[in-house]
Design a protein around this nucleic acid. Structure first.
Lengths: 339, 339
DNA sequence: GTGAAAGCGCTAACAC
DNA sequence: GTGTTAGCGCTTTCAC
């Protein structure tokens, strides 16, 4: 576990015959040092392959500028496609704001509060972005300050715990989806569910039921067990669908992955989409536009969610924000060929 | 940029009336401390919400156990699907070995050696896994030791620079693909290329040409410009294909994403797969099994690559390995419906 | 403009 | 079993 012995500031100081503090200055505030000195330091540093120990620097400065994205394990993937889209927004914004981003994958499907606290206390991280993490009862105390903890939740509303949250308006999205299908004349529905117990899942399912009820179609809904947000689960749901006595004409899937898997199962069985079954997904992943038929879906502004979360986190860290706010972004219906 | 003031070891020491070193011991080696003492420390620590500052600990111990995965930007995605598969293997193995994993996304398509050196010198990271990074001329000096640098390259062979590398046998994979198609009786071919200049791309393209030549079919190959490994590029290539005077009957795509995009373009134009055009991909991504028709592809052992890389890196860090080795894993042909 | 000294929070000898 | 001391590599007053 030992590291190779690297050049330290002291090494450079020794070799230049200067004092460590001078070398330090020469490197971090070149203007406050003699030109000649600066050049000498730079040269020796290069010779020695010196670059500063970040930990020591942070420890000394009491300041850090790295944020950590904590991602749970869903469907046994290190990172769901949606997450990588979100990540892109986070990384872009972070770069603009001068923060480094680290990502940490967790093997559990929800990130324990203690882990977050540990990370924050650890001193290497100035803020945390939580991906799709639910079931928190409370945010454990962090430090002794009265400042809000530098934690932003993505995809799940945690404002009741005092955490700024950036989410998609999933309920609205699914309602809109239902409206769209009803408008197109569909009268019987199936809903392919996501992972049991997940907050997303509850929101989505309820939204579909409620909106259908609004249309007086509350009893025309069949719920099909999907499972983790992956294609295999969708295909399994298709089997269940095909076994139904009366098959609903419109199927709403809790995610694009489920929808693609479902659609594949349907087509493989010889039915056609959308003639026999209309299918809609949710997420707006890139592949939804390249399956055949193309998938009608609600596109989440994933990258924008990431960007927005990072911006909020930066405000929190820099002390420019003090109350938890909910930022809810509207998904957008992409009408394509499957429904 | 300032952190909330947290409880430190000193705080706990003060409140318990014990010495800092005792508290430290109580926390990290409970058995070497009086039972009564331990309990008191634990209680106060809990009260104060104390958890150790990792940086200070590492600085003091001179030891770290975090490895960093550096991932380049391809096709403007934070992480290609293949990378997330690899990541899963890395994370699993790291967990087993007691390492933490951090991931860092870079906005460039290849990671500059200096960045890696900086990270390693930074002192927070004990080793680096490089994802699909090419065009390195040399590995800059790291530290003064004669030990090999704790860097493992994934997907690209960097053994000539002294870096242990874990790769897929891409050339063999593409040759096998060609053999398969020839065996099935195809006589005319197109190759949809990946990003220009990428090492992968060169290897794959050359392998296809060479193997076709071996079969005396060297002049029956048309190269179609694909571009970044994404579906939109595949769809564009399909347009180019459709504009051809003589359309090859078999199309080899440099990646699954390209293949799915290409297939979509072909089907949208009213042709059928595989009757009119046979299509094969490379990667073995999950969606390749759920498009219609299902995609024949070479499945890379992505997760295994990740696991293997992490294992090698651990050996390097623990000083149990000293020479750069090449670990090449064989991809596997998945015959499905598209060819 | 540069050096001396103190200290960031922790751990690891070394005494007692 | 516990306290004392020194030190990890760096930055930052504060003198000069």
């Amino acid at each position: 576990m030992h590291l190779i012995r690297r050049a330290t500031l002291a090494d450079v100081a020794r070799k230049t015959g200067l004092n460590a503090s001078t070398v330090s200055r020469a490197l971090s505030r070149p203007e406050r040092v003699n030109d000649e000195t600066r050049r000498r330091v730079e040269q020796v540093a290069a010779e020695l392959g010196y670059s500063p120990n970040i930990m020591a620097r942070n420890l000394s400065r009491g300041v850090i500028n790295t944020i950590l994205v904590m991602a749970p394990n869903f469907a046994d993937q290190a990172l769901l496609p949606v997450f990588t889209d979100v990540l892109l927004g986070i990384c872009n914004e972070a770069e603009a704001q001068g923060f480094n981003v680290m990502i940490q994958h967790h093997s559990a499907s929800t990130i324990p509060p203690e882990d977050v606290v540990k990370v924050l206390n650890g001193g290497m991280i100035s803020g945390v972005i939580l991906m799709a993490t639910d079931h928190w009862k409370a945010v454990p105390e962090i430090g002794s300050g009265t400042q809000p903890p530098p934690i932003v939740s993505i995809m799940v509303d945690m404002t009741h715990l005092g955490l700024t949250s950036v989410v998609a308006q999933e309920a609205e999205g699914f309602s809109e989806m239902v409206d769209y299908l009803v408008r197109r004349g569909y009268m019987s529905f199936a809903y392919v569910s996501g992972p049991k117990g997940a907050t997303h899942e509850k929101i989505r399912c309820r939204s579909v039921m409620t909106q259908l009820t609004t249309h007086g179609l509350g009893d025309r809904l069949i719920r099909l067990e999907g499972g983790p947000f992956d294609m295999a689960s969708g295909a399994r749901a298709a089997k269940a669908y095909l076994a139904l006595h009366e098959r609903p004409r419109a199927v709403i899937c809790s995610s694009d992955a489920l929808a693609v898997g479902f659609m594949h199962g349907i087509i493989a069985a010889g039915l056609s989409v959308p003639e026999d079954v209309a299918i809609v997904g949710y997420d707006g992943l890139d592949y939804s536009a390249f399956v055949t038929p193309t998938l009608t879906t609600m596109s989440q502004p994933s990258t924008e969610i990431g960007r927005s979360a990072m911006r909020s986190l930066a405000d929190l860290i820099l002390g420019q924000a003090s109350t938890a706010q909910l930022i809810a972004l509207r998904p957008k219906l992409l009408v394509r060929d499957s429904a």
